[in-house]
Each structure stands twice: as structure tokens, then as C-alpha cells.
């Protein structure tokens, strides 16, 4: 049985584009077309507005929480071509502003905490930026990858630190190369690897027949397997698997009735939430024999999962 335990009234004056829970699941950050970012404390079933961040001058597309070992940091990206990193020290204030893109910044993602405080973002100008905090100087260093995807980049996601190089012992390996996956308007998914102080295109995955809307690298379970989920305007969700992070095998999870906009992996990477233009969120799980099954569907009005009548004896 599923219960709605709480309803959070966001008070945004326009459409919400993203909602992200912090590391501990105690705070929710939302962003909207009303140019604002809001943070709610959602402890013990009640929610209070903790902050209303105004600093963008355009719709805010996405927000991302940093690892708490770096303090309470939130990054946001907007149509106004800017990325803002907010910090809480008593009050929420602007810690750093990055304005190195020539068009809307569509997605932000913090690197695995093991690598340090590093933020990746991508833009409609087709380029990516990797922004690294330099502890000693207290400055931010920016590396830009120009012309990553033609027409624009929609989504960016980091490879978990532990499975970065699957040929090494997954638990002790620290020096594995950093990897990033991106999805763009050229219908491609690209994997980027850091080499020296450069980022090089390591792989391009071709499968989708329309704009790739979201890519998400699955959390690593310490196994010799890496997994990426991608979704596209072509209504398909594809799961890419690899045992060496170099050669990738696609499996079509499903072809939906409408454009698929976003993907979210559960904490241990065993469930994938898919949300699409058909007002539905469905949850998918890989069975022991490698098949992807829909375990639940949440939709406006009614949703139904198989085996409903068998759930009780």
C-alpha cells in the first residue's frame, strides 16, 4: 500500500522544473520558472520554508546538493546563462557565480565527493564546464569543453567514484579516471574521461533517434558492472551496461506513449523512476534474470501494477 504522507505547497508562482532532496533526505530544494530557488526542511512529516533564493534572472532549470562534508552547498543553473553556488552559513548566501556560457545552462551535477568539490554543468551553447574548488587558494578553477554536442547539451551525470575503473579493485581504487556522461540535441550520448588536465571524448553511444533529454549514471554497488540510463524525445528509455566502462551494451527498457523527460535512480540503484509527458511516473526494477519490469506506476487518477489481487493472502 502506498500513502501520501505529506503534501508540500511550494508557493512557486510558475512551473517547477526540478526538485532535489539533500544527502540525508531532510531538505528539499525546488526551482521554478519564477526565477527562484526554494529550500524546505522536511523533517518529521512537516515542512517549513528555510530559504527563498533570488539571484537568477530567468527560469531555473535544475538544482544540485553538494556532499555535506563540504558544508551545505546548493548549485543552481538557469536560462539566464548562469550557474550559482549557494552556501548556508547561518543564512543562505551566494558563494560563487559562474557566467561562462553563452546560452541557457540546462543541467548541473556535483562530482562524487571523493574527487573533491567539483561541479559539472552543460549548456544550450553546446559546451560543458567543469568547475573545481581549489582548497588552498579558495578559488574556483574552470575547464571548458567546447562543442560537446551540436545544438545543445541537455543533461550531465557523473560516473560514481567507486566504479570509475572497473579493472581495478573497486573498493580501494582512488586514482581511477573521472568520467562524465552527457546527453544532447544531436541525439547522442557521450562519455568524457579526464586525462591529465584535459577532458577527452571517450565514447559516443548512438541509439536514440531524437533529442536525448536525460542521462543518469547508476550508483555503484561494488560489482564489476556500470550502468547508465538515458531517455529521449523518441519516447524510449535505454539502459546501457558495461563491465569495463569502455564498451557499452544498450537494452531498451521500454518505449513509452510520450516523450520521456527525466530519470531518477534509487539510492542503491535497484529501481529507476521514469517520468514522461504522459503524466505518469513508473518505477522499474531489474529482475534476477536481467529483465526490466515495471513494478509500479503513479499517474494522475488511477495507477495499477500487476499482481494487485495477489498482494494479500
Amino acid at each position: 500500500m502506498i500513502n501520501v504522507i505529506n503534501t508540500i505547497d511550494t508557493g512557486h508562482e510558475d512551473m517547477i522544473h526540478d526538485a532535489e532532496l539533500d544527502y540525508y533526505g531532510l531538505r528539499l530544494a525546488t526551482c521554478s520558472s519564477d526565477n527562484s530557488v526554494k529550500i524546505y526542511d522536511i523533517k518529521s512529516g512537516t515542512q517549513t520554508l528555510a530559504a527563498d533564493l533570488k539571484g537568477h534572472f530567468g527560469p531555473v532549470w535544475q538544482v544540485a546538493w553538494a556532499h555535506p562534508k563540504y558544508g551545505n552547498l546548493l548549485a543552481s543553473c538557469s536560462y539566464d546563462r548562469k550557474v550559482i553556488i549557494w552556501k548556508e552559513a547561518g543564512e543562505w548566501t551566494k558563494l560563487y557565480e559562474y557566467a561562462g556560457h553563452e546560452s541557457s545552462v540546462n543541467s548541473v551535477a556535483w562530482a562524487p565527493a571523493e574527487y573533491g568539490l567539483i561541479l559539472a554543468c552543460c549548456s544550450s551553447d553546446g559546451s560543458l564546464s567543469i568547475i573545481t574548488y581549489i582548497q588552498d587558494s579558495g578559488n574556483w578553477d574552470v575547464k571548458k569543453i567546447p562543442a560537446a554536442h551540436a545544438i545543445g547539451v541537455n543533461s550531465i551525470s557523473w560516473c560514481p567514484a567507486i566504479s570509475a575503473d572497473l579493472n581495478l579493485d573497486p573498493l580501494s581504487n582512488k586514482d581511477a579516471p573521472k568520467r562524465i556522461v552527457t546527453g544532447g540535441c544531436d541525439n547522442l550520448i557521450k562519455i568524457w574521461r579526464e586525462q591529465g588536465d584535459q577532458w577527452i571524448e571517450e565514447n559516443r553511444l548512438e541509439m536514440h533517434m531524437d533529442w536525448v533529454r536525460d542521462v543518469a549514471w547508476a550508483p555503484s554497488l561494488g560489482l564489476q558492472r556500470s550502468m547508465i540510463a538515458s531517455c529521449s524525445q523518441d519516447k524510449r528509455v535505454v539502459i546501457w551496461t558495461s563491465d569495463d566502462n569502455v564498451s557499452w551494451t544498450p537494452t531498451i527498457l521500454n518505449t513509452f506513449d510520450d516523450v520521456v523527460w527525466s530519470l531518477s535512480w534509487s539510492l542503491t540503484g535497484n529501481i529507476l523512476a521514469v517520468s514522461g509527458g504522459d503524466n505518469k511516473v513508473s518505477l522499474w526494477k531489474e529482475s534476477a534474470d536481467g529483465q526490466w519490469l515495471c513494478i509500479s506506476e503513479v499517474a494522475k487518477g488511477l495507477g495499477q501494477a500487476p499482481n494487485e489481487e495477489r498482494s494479500t493472502l
Binding site: 500500500m1 502506498i2 501520501v4 504522507i5 503534501t7 508540500i8 512551473m15 517547477i16 526538485a19 532535489e20 532532496l21 533526505g25 528539499l28 523527460w261 527525466s262 531518477s264 535512480w265 534509487s266 539510492l267 529501481i271 523512476a273 517520468s275 514522461g276 509527458g277 503524466n279 505518469k280 511516473v281 518505477l283 513494478i295 509500479s296 506506476e297 503513479v298 499517474a299 494522475k300 487518477g301 488511477l302 495507477g303 495499477q304 501494477a305 494487485e308 498482494s311
Partner: peptide, 25 residues
Amino acid sequence: MLVILPGKCFEQKAACVFRHGNKFA
């Protein structure tokens, strides 16, 4: 599993974000 959500808030497209295990938003 059957979920009925208040209809009005889903005039827009829906998306999902995981909290821990049995909870999501």
C-alpha cells in the same frame, strides 16, 4: 499497488525524486 493522487496538481507533467527506500516525492 494502487496510487490515486490529487488530480489538480498534475495538470502539468509529473516527475519523481527518490528519498530513502520506501519514500519518494
